[in-house]
Design a protein around this nucleic acid. Structure first.
Length: 418
RNA sequence: GGACAGGUGGGUGAGUGGCUGAAACCACACCCCUGCUAAGGGUGCGUGUCCGAAAGGGCACCGAGGGUUCGAAUCCCUCCCUGUCCGCCA
């Protein structure tokens, strides 16, 4: 959640920052006004409440002394009614305030370029030269069919569109990739976790998926449980409503989970193949840091994801997202896009974000800094999206006859055989 | 899923209507004493929010939400969770 006090004190600055993300200034004005109202209502209520408490105490003393309490009681009865109204008012305003505040996206960092969509993102650098083909490279869905790696029809039969199933060679490769990623992350300091893939609404609110993006989530009927769209939700919320010791930071975590997304609003996009599925595997990194540590950890996470791609021999580029393309919770994001020779373009395979204290405020994740409790910074990034890595391997390692060469680094994970 | 028992501060745990935001002990921090593997004493030590430069003060929070009452951690209702036993089961 955005810092309301910051908006109150630095309104113009806050407004110009959020303009980068396309947030209307009027929304902020409304918020500021509500915040002022909330404080006023709170003050009014608390003053009366203090009065009531004092008189009630007297009431007890009077009674003990056998004094007449009728007059006092009448006074308190009236106060009670007055307070009930004041309290109700304060509650209503507060609820309204938070309802609105929870819909305001995070402030982008100053470094974030202006822009309205992905076309305005800024390429930072390219890593590894795309391979030169002496034949026309095919797209992954074609290769998948030629090699019988992916069964799209039966995936749909089992569930619905945008579900697929992997046949023996691809299924093994999928798991090899998961293990390879987890090991790679672990070697670079990320603790390997295992988490529930169903999380409750409080957690989804903590990382920013709720309340605004409810339509993107699969919800369990009759339960306060959602299938997580990313392990970021579970990993970050491990520390929901906790106060951490400064010495324990930064916490670097990694986990593999399947991820579930409704992909509402992306009808017609990437309908062929497994680029955009309702269920996909991903190995995620999450970091919990002090504000001072978060920039350095951010770089480390980007580097780690990039190094994995390099280890797999996959050409890729780093892209700094512009304000308009930045996610709701992110202050800054660098996407890693892998080269897909079949599609002849770079496609997102990892996204590393620093949310600064935005999620920490929502999820109430703090750390002790001396006597004070401060909000941590939370960061997340894929390392990597597994299904998309499978695509990248298929397209980059394809041979003229449609067969696919397995990258050397994965062979140990396949017991040297498919 | 059924039955019973519970949910209090970092932990253990007291507290059945006002003197309790909460005893005591442990843990932790600092100080004093002592002097070596027996320790003792003192002080501090929840979270959030509002006012304040600060000191300090107000309000809220004893699983969550309602209710009764002048007044609730304490009484009532609903829900959630935990434990134990039974059932079921990877």
């Amino acid at each position: 959640m955005v810092d309301l006090k910051y908006i109150e004190k630095n309104f113009e600055e806050a407004a110009s920052k959020l303009a980068k993300k396309g947030v209307d200034k009027h929304l902020l004005e409304e918020l500021k006004e509500l915040f002022a109202q909330k404080k006023e209502a709170q003050r009014a209520f608390e003053a009366k409440r203090a009065e009531q408490k004092a008189l009630s105490k007297e009431f007890g003393i009077y009674k003990a002394q056998g004094k007449d309490i009728n007059e006092l009681k009448e006074k308190l009865d009236n106060l009670k009614k007055e307070i009930a109204t004041l309290e109700e008012d304060a509650k209503v305003i507060e609820a309204k305030l938070y309802e609105k505040a929870l819909l305001i996206p995070n402030f982008p960092d100053d470094i974030v370029p202006e822009g309205k969509d992905e076309n305005d993102n800024v390429e930072i650098k390219r890593v590894l030269e795309p391979r030169a083909f002496d034949f026309e490279p095919k797209e992954h869905w074609e290769l998948a069919q030629m090699n019988n790696w992916i069964d799209f029809e039966r995936g749909v039969k089992l569930a619905k569109s945008r579900f697929a199933l992997l046949n023996p060679p691809a299924a093994k490769l999928e798991r090899a990739l998961i293990n390879f990623f987890l090991d790679f992350n672990e070697k670079n300091g990320f603790e390997q976790m295992w988490v529930p893939v169903l999380n409750n609404s409080k957690m989804l609110l903590g990382t920013g998926q709720l309340p605004k993006f409810q339509d993107d989530l699969f919800k369990v009927e009759g339960e306060d449980l959602y299938l997580i769209p990313t392990a970021e939700v579970a990993l970050t919320n491990i520390y929901n409503d906790e106060i951490l010791e400064k010495e324990k930071l930064p916490l670097l975590l990694t986990a593999y989970t399947p991820c579930f997304r409704k992909e509402a609003g992306s009808a017609g996009r990437d309908t062929r193949g497994i680029m955009r599925q309702h269920q996909f595997d991903k190995v995620e990194m999450v970091a919990i840091t002090t504000p001072e540590q978060s920039d350095e950890v951010f770089e480390k996470m980007v580097e780690n994801a990039s190094n994995i791609l390099s280890a797999l021999g996959l050409p890729h580029r780093l892209v700094e997202l512009c304000g308009g393309d930045l996610g709701f919770s992110a202050a800054r994001t660098i996407d890693l896009e892998v080269w897909l020779p079949g599609q002849k373009r770079y496609r997102e395979i990892s996204s590393v974000s620093n949310t600064r204290d935005f999620q920490a405020r929502r999820a109430k994740i703090r750390y002790k800094d001396g006597k004070k409790n401060r909000f941590v910074h939370t960061l997340n990034g894929s390392a990597l999206a597994v299904g998309r890595t499978l695509i990248a391997i298929m397209e980059n390692y394809q041979n003229k006859d449609g067969s696919i060469t397995i990258p050397e680094v994965l062979k140990p994970y396949l017991q040297n055989r498919l």
